[in-house]
Amino acid sequence: MKKLALLLLVVLLGLLPLFVGKYTLYMTIHIMLLSLFSLGFNLLLGYTGLLSFGQAGFFAVGAYACAKILMAAPSLLLGILGGVAVAGVISLLLGLLSIRHTRIYFSMLTLCFGMMIFSLAWKWRDMTGGDDGLVGIPRAPLEVPGLFSINMTPMENYYYVVLVFTILAVYLFYRIVHSPLGLTLQGIRDSETRAACVGISVRNYRLISFTIAGLYAGLAGALLPPLESTVTPPVAHWSHSAEPVLATLLGGIYTFAGPIVGAALFYILKDIIVRFTEYWLICLGVIVVVLVLGFRGGVVSMFYGKGGQR
């Protein structure tokens, strides 16, 4: 039943460009990006028990790296993979420093590192374009030299690229959290001391979790510049780090699909409200408070029994 529903969802997403307009596709791409961003974030929060406020930094590293690559060598695959790789390296380096602490200290450290990346993006004008950001980034063709080259100018084509990346990344994430690695991370979350006592290297596992979360943030970021043709410093700001936090809280921390459902809900709510009022933040805030108070385990938990199924 569950598999059938999943298959149906994938088919539906695959056929979406046939039924909807460009703007809905554009919004769906954004929902997929936030889903990837939130999934990675939830590996830290929901599975490892670490609340990071600096994920937007890695998102921005992925986005800026992809943008710079695309501007220098117009190849979509190179841009995206390059962006993910750079974000992975940076998250590994900053992870080495951040995972030395837990709880609020970890959150503050990640917030600081995230804002350091924001400051770099904002002030290093020669490299990042400063406050104006990088503009005119091409949506380069998807090509493997000698094999194929697909034009990415139509939004539909790029939608399929993002969809394929998302499906692969979600599947990989599913395998990760259901592997011994995922179970170990949950063990560390539930009792760090007990995990250490059975011989698990808590720090190493936390570092792996942090790097994977950074890679997912980097992937979401790297998929952004070809869509928007621009990258600006607000993508690195801590308020952008709050988006996966909100999406995950809305959807549910302790459920696999929670961040994905939360991302969709967050974007749809935001887009609908912003059309009617410039005070959309107030309205969204009220809705989030109601949802968080009403569904404490997240919206997805409604579909599961008491205690929640993971």
Partner: peptide
């Protein structure tokens, strides 16, 4: 980024025939 999103929404979803506006130079270049 917001200016780009607005332009996309206005042209492809709301169905604007013509666009105008934009205050910031950075937004205009995007």
């Amino acid at each position: 980024a917001v200016a780009v999103k607005n332009a996309r929404y206005l042209a492809t979803d709301w169905g604007a025939h013509l666009l105008f506006g934009v205050d910031s130079s950075g937004s205009a270049m995007a």
